[in-house]
Design a protein around this nucleic acid. Sequence first.
RNA 1: GCCCCCAUCGUCUAGUGGCCUAGGACACCACCCUUUCAAGGUGGCGGCACGGGUUCGAAUCCCGUUGGGGGUGCCA
Length: 470
Amino acid sequence: MTGPRFRFAPSPTGFFHVGGARTALWNWALARSMGGTFVLRIEDTDAERNRPEWTQGIIDALAWIGVHTDDPHFEGPYFQSNYAEQHVAAAQRLFEQGDAYYCDMTGADVEARNKAEGNQGYQGWSRNRGLGPGPGHVLRFKVPAGTTVVHDLVRGEVTFDNSLIEDFVLLRGNGTPMFLLANVVDDMTMSISHVVRAEEHLPNTPKQQMMWEALGHEPPVWAHVPVLVNEARKKLSKRRDKVALEMYRDEGYLADAMVNYLMTLGWMPKGGEEIQPWAQMEADFRLEDVNHSPAFFDLKKLAAFNGDYIRSMSPAEFLEACRPWLLAADAPFPADRFDEEVFLAMAPVIQPRATTLAEALGVVDFMFLAEPAIDADAWAKATATPDLVGVLRSSSAAFEAVADWSADELKAAFEQAAEANGFAKPGKAQAPVRVAITGRTVGPPLFESLEFLGRDETLRRLRNADATIG
RNA sequence: GCCCCCAUCGUCUAGUGGCCUAGGACACCACCCUUUCAAGGUGGCGGCACGGGUUCGAAUCCCGUUGGGGGUGCCA
């Protein structure tokens, strides 16, 4: 692979952020459509928040959204912690070149001096003190005078006044490298040509660009994409918001729907049609077309996308997609009562009624439950008047007499029973039968359900329900 | 506080000086269809933050204001 080299560099935190997923997807689309490479680098240098299993979580999440480690465009994962020596070596080089210097002031020292002098930030106090490395000495980058212009593919030219950028820390007092340094050195080592990341990194960019230059390299192409925000228009946070990709997967959001939705947050496929196959989006995606303002991660719209994708599946695909929920320990009904044939046959009436896969099983759970729970309020309402009770009893009798147990005949039988009890519109009289059979007032078409439920079970449930009426 | 970014319906967006009476999607409302609920169909509501310029002409260019967001660690 000789094309451009992109990278995705998450820090392991135990879950995969939806914002990170979008960034990964955009990098992935770019790498693939440009014949380039997507480098995965796990930024695990902060021992505080890092566990080996987190990494697998990242790889699994990426695979779910279609970023596969066995794709020729994929490279990695690399672990930042393995490159500490190189980070330190680069810092050493900057020191030797005179682009960095040691400082023995602690954070408290800096704060105290600023308070005394009415200043803010680090004022380059140790620039000319000629300090060498030593315990507690941090290495700081000597920010040159002038301005730094960042060329950004989505923002354009952004100019920073270097005098407003403090001499930032490269190496901690204990000698370990800081993120800014590690990040730059790794990008250089991995020959990254395009850094596509969230906007929150834009203020870091002049610092990183100065390091690239000091280290004798041409900086990469930068692209800072807008952040994803919540309803209050604040950056999505794991404390407040539902940001874990895994949670959406577990609730039955389809990967294709999630991917499609994420892609359109800040970018619109050509032609203005939002629902697009991955291949099309991959081919069309351009950083130059990315929007500049933060995008609200809208659960309602995600749900709409998901419903759309669910409805477009064939019954067989739908069954397979539901399989994990059918086999789950907390499945809504016991596996041995499940009937694939029935589920397949009912799929077309289930799909338009479900927003998520998890929800889909709930639509037909009554078909596979030995004794579906009857909602008390629904039952009370469905049998509140004598005519409703009458419908229940006469339809029960009418069903018993049906010769051919089919939806059509059941419907005809029911309509007669309803009319006999004074209902001009049979639809209005469905409630008692529906509640008796399904436990609820709403659900898939009743007579088709009865057909599949079978004569014996239908009549049994009607008799049981009838018996509960005084 | 300081620095940076941003600003089209409630939301995601189309729009790159005349094609804009500002288009689509989600949400919402109404109607149709109908076997409940959905789905589907039709229609509706609703927006260029404000003020100055530039121009024959501005949602589009410039300046300012206001508003929002991000960043300001010996976190990543």
